[in-house]
């Protein structure tokens, strides 16, 4: 784990306010696993104050890459940085997806697709061909991240909320049909995306297929010090509470660890 200023090698606008940003970070690239994240100081000074967590989208050689959408103050600052500039980063942090035997399904929506590319690449390098389901709001958003997934071998399905590309509606609607294609198989399902999507994935998989989800919360430190990145657990912990900490216990959880809120 390092905290250091490292050089940006690429900050590319992909359309729909989505960017991919690569950083020269050999110490992180060498050890990072799919599902892990980094904390990024998006600006100098005290506003924004806190670092922002980003899943690692992929690694290549000495570089790591994140995928982000320009939404608030932090990501706006990030979008303005150029190759050659320095970025203060901290990582790699958190746990990783666990690869298991059986056919694999990766289902992601919006910026939640970020760690799934790294996961799919990891699977491919081990001879596993995942089934990938991706959801986006519209064609522009989908086209921002789809090409990276298309570069992988494997089955790929996608949907947009407005039907401007692929199936119309939420990608979750395609999941039961995919899993039913091989109903006897021990599917391994991996998901990252909006909370309602992961909740629906967890419900479909419950008692049938193991499901891993990557969770996102507000986070101050990323290193287990602030205890702010709490989510509600199904079981009571040894402190007598039903809480999990995303940076310490996650960000990847078994879906059944989580008490899903309606």
């Amino acid at each position: 784990m390092i905290q250091a200023k490292r050089q940006i090698t690429l900050n590319e606008s992909l359309g729909a306010d989505i960017y991919r940003l690569s950083i020269q970070a050999p110490e992180i690239a060498a050890t990072a696993q799919a599902g892990q994240f980094i904390m990024v100081k998006t600006g100098v000074g005290f506003d924004p104050l806190l670092r922002r967590p980003f899943s690692i989208h992929q690694t290549e050689g000495d570089e790591i890459q994140i995928l982000f959408k320009r939404l608030g103050k932090g990501t706006t600052l990030l979008s303005k940085l150029a190759a050659g500039q320095q970025l203060d980063i901290l990582g790699p942090l958190g746990n990783a997806f666990t690869l298991q035997e059986g056919p694999c399904c990766l289902i992601g929506g919006g910026m939640g697709v970020a760690p799934l590319l790294f996961l799919a690449q990891t699977m491919r390098s081990r001879g596993i061909t995942p089934h990938i389901l991706l959801g986006a709001r519209n064609k522009a958003e989908l086209m921002a991240f789809l090409p990276a997934f298309q570069a992988l071998d494997g089955s790929l399905r996608y949907a947009t909320d407005d039907g401007s590309m692929g199936q119309r509606g939420f990608i979750i609607e395609a999941l039961p049909a995919l899993l039913a294609e091989d109903n006897k198989a021990k599917w391994q399902v991996y998901s990252c995306g909006p909370y309602p999507m992961m909740r629906a994935v967890a419900a479909i998989c419950q008692h049938k297929w193991p499901c891993q989800v990557s969770m996102e919360t507000m986070m101050a430190c990323g290193i287990s010090a602030c205890l702010g990145c709490t989510i509600t657990a199904r079981n009571t912990n040894r402190k007598g509470g039903k809480y999990l900490h995303v940076c310490q216990d996650g960000p990847v959880f078994a879906a059944e660890q989580i008490e899903w809120k309606s």
Binding site: A220, K239, Y243
Partner: peptide, 29 residues
């Protein structure tokens, strides 16, 4: 004296040049 589970989420939010927290003294005891 005894472990404390702390408060339910959300526990933190960023504000201008600062942050608000309501961790609720979560600790191991």
């Amino acid at each position: 004296l005894r472990p404390r589970p702390g408060n339910p989420p959300p526990r933190i939010v960023e504000t201008a040049c600062g942050m608000l927290n309501a961790i609720g003294l979560e600790n191991v005891g």
